[in-house]
């Protein structure tokens, strides 16, 4: 279980995701829910950090489709790996969002501390928290487990590394999200589920 950092000021807001009559694991695979959740989240986060965001609908839909294809390709047949894969699915979601960022900050955040991740990279911060929030809500619903964040979340050096490395390889985002959830990713191929399992088991 990852260590919880009492100093973290992270706010995941899983409660602000839209309601659905379907289980979240199903709803999240429908663009109508995903889009509504993303837009709501970006707006909420924008108000919180004092920044107006714009969202490109087509880029968001393309990221959503790439994410679906990625999870279908990597989904393990072994049901005992279901819980691990839930977490990995959130990492793949961040990879696809950062591969062709659908959200753009229209201004610098006015309510975020100068040395915070939100001020450093508002778009990356917003997408990361969205993926973590969806993950937290799904884990709560499916496994009745709370999501704790690694202290790395509050270390700006990790966010700097995240931004720089993701520019060259969006797969790095997957490793970053796994790290925030308290795992040590396979940094050579952080977006390959099979290798992550081998890495953790080995």
């Amino acid at each position: 279980m990852p260590g919880w950092c009492p100093m973290s000021d992270a706010r995941l807001h899983p409660d602000q995701l839209p309601p659905s009559n379907e289980p979240l694991r199903i709803a999240v695979r429908r663009l109508r829910w995903f889009k509504s959740a993303f837009f709501n989240y970006v707006e909420t986060k924008g108000r919180e950090i004092g920044c107006k965001f714009s969202v490109d609908d087509t880029k968001l839909a393309a990221a959503f489709l790439r994410w679906l294809e990625a999870i279908e390709r990597q989904k393990p047949a072994d049901k005992s790996q279901r819980r691990d894969f839930f977490e990995f699915a959130a990492a793949l979601m961040l990879r696809e969002l950062t591969a062709d960022m659908p959200v753009t900050a229209q201004s610098a955040p006015t309510r975020a501390h100068r040395d915070s991740a939100a001020a450093f990279w508002p778009e990356g911060y917003c997408c990361t928290l969205f993926c973590l929030s969806v993950h937290a809500a799904a884990m709560q619903q499916e496994f009745h487990e709370a999501t704790d964040l690694d202290p790395a979340f509050d270390d700006l050096r990790h966010w700097w590394s995240f931004k720089e490395n993701t520019r060259q390889d969006a797969g790095f985002s997957s490793g970053f999200l796994q790290m925030l959830l308290g795992h040590e990713p396979n940094w050579l191929m952080p977006d390959v589920f099979r290798l992550r399992l081998q890495s953790e088991l080995g």
Binding site: L31, R32, T58, L65
Partner: peptide
């Protein structure tokens, strides 16, 4: 599959998906 309340939103997201593809 869609409810009456979702009708417009579903048309909007169907357009998003068609544009993406």
């Amino acid at each position: 599959a869609r409810s009456d309340a979702e009708n417009e939103a579903v048309l909007d997201t169907a357009t998003d998906l068609a544009l993406a593809k």
